[in-house]
Design a protein around this nucleic acid. Sequence first.
RNA 1: UCCUCGGUAGCUCAGCGGUAGAGCGGUCGGCUGUUAACCGAUUGGUCGUAGGUUCGAAUCCCACCCGGGGAGCCA
Length: 463
Amino acid sequence: MTRRIVEILKKGQPEETITIQGWVRTKREQKGFAFIEVNDGSSMSGLQAILNADLPDYETILKNLNTGASVEVEGILAPSPGKGQRIELQASSVKVYGDADPNTYPLQKKRHSFEFLRTIAHLRSRTNTLGAVMRVRNACATAIHKFFQDKGFIWVHTPIITANDCEGAGELFTVTNLDLNNTPKKEDKSAIDFEQDFFGRRAYLTVSGQLQAEVMAMAFQNVYTFGPTFRAENSNTSRHLAEFWMVEPEMAFCDIVGDRDLAEEFLKYIFKYVLETCPEDMEFFNKRIDNSVLATADNIINNEFERISYTEAIDLLVKSNKKFEFPVEWGLDLQSEHERYLAEELFKKPVIVTDYPVGIKAFYMRLNDDNKTVAAMDVLAPKIGEIIGGSQREERLDVLETRMKDLDIPPEELWWYLDLRRYGTVPHAGFGLGFERVVQFMTGMANIRDVIPFPRAPLSAEF
RNA sequence: UCCUCGGUAGCUCAGCGGUAGAGCGGUCGGCUGUUAACCGAUUGGUCGUAGGUUCGAAUCCCACCCGGGGAGCCA
């Protein structure tokens, strides 16, 4: 492997002979010589190389060295007399691997709209912005693993195909290998007979690894999942994807307070890690995408998150005297506009809301002693809303069974989940973090489809 | 799925009943150190699709398709 440009820009010394490989970002021809900027994806900045006309095949090489061409440049590093870079590469030999016809190559040396870049998702990672996004995304993922591994959590791989359609987290994609032009029918011809399908029952893409993570937490105490999840909702927003990555820690012997504190520590850790490892990319986002991202990161890292109960949140919303489109009333769920008021206007930092009414939350959340609320928590972040949703789980078999009955969830579907309460049950808690939303929050990118390489959304799965 | 705005050159947009435009890009030429280089010339179109109104439609009307923003659902 040749040296990466990120390292050369930091540590490269004059007189060193080096070889770089990458893609041409710009070519600036002069009389008798030319500049090219080569980027290899290792950093925002590329390395400037100078090609003198006395290079063998200079004319041919220059003609093929257009934006997008792949190239290997060998030469000697020298201090750069021009402004904008410390060092530059004086090329002694240049090899063009593949040219890029400027008549058809869609990326220009100028700003493109993100809408256009989504139509060329196979090329957009070569742009400054998407390059920075993907490096920050990588740093976020690394931070997540480091955080949990340093605390002794076990990374567990929960299934992507599941047979439970009762997890209550939205519409599911069906997984089948039946012949869709000739599906087997049940005896009364009313419906498809999934007993003849691959798994002998209807199967789905997972919407959450939580239930299986609970299984694993009952053996390893502290675990986390980190993988793709799927929702077949017809959601057309800048905050939703049909395929997204989710992080779900689950802790045995833990209550809602421990859960809440971990969520805050976790978010702070990620932000700190990314600021330390991707300073150049973060500067770019602050300058070109959203001039508040560095201040926001600073705010996250250095301030305590606000902690309020759902009941207090309702009081604050009523007292605000603001005109909301949706009603504010105890028992109704908080709407986007309410969440935004709390996080953006009132507290101007993340807010953790706990103890929601039992009627608006999932069956597995632990019933509080007031019998009216459950030990749920949402972390609301300025600009993007709910970034984390979690809860203490109901560990009491009888209470859980009653809740499932109230919600018409057949217990035989989740017999194994109920078994966890029969054998060695323990208070436990966890949360789910939408990975792309963290990357969005971190970078200031307005649309979630621009923080994942190949976004999956309604009518969108081309690449 | 609902509300709303939009779809005109490769890209970003102007034109909004009367001969299809600009900037950028591409191409050609110029320039001894450029930084999304610069200067000059030049190239480039089924005006989203299908109907309708009109002497005449990119422009007005209708339907559909696609995209942005917002909402719902949620992470």
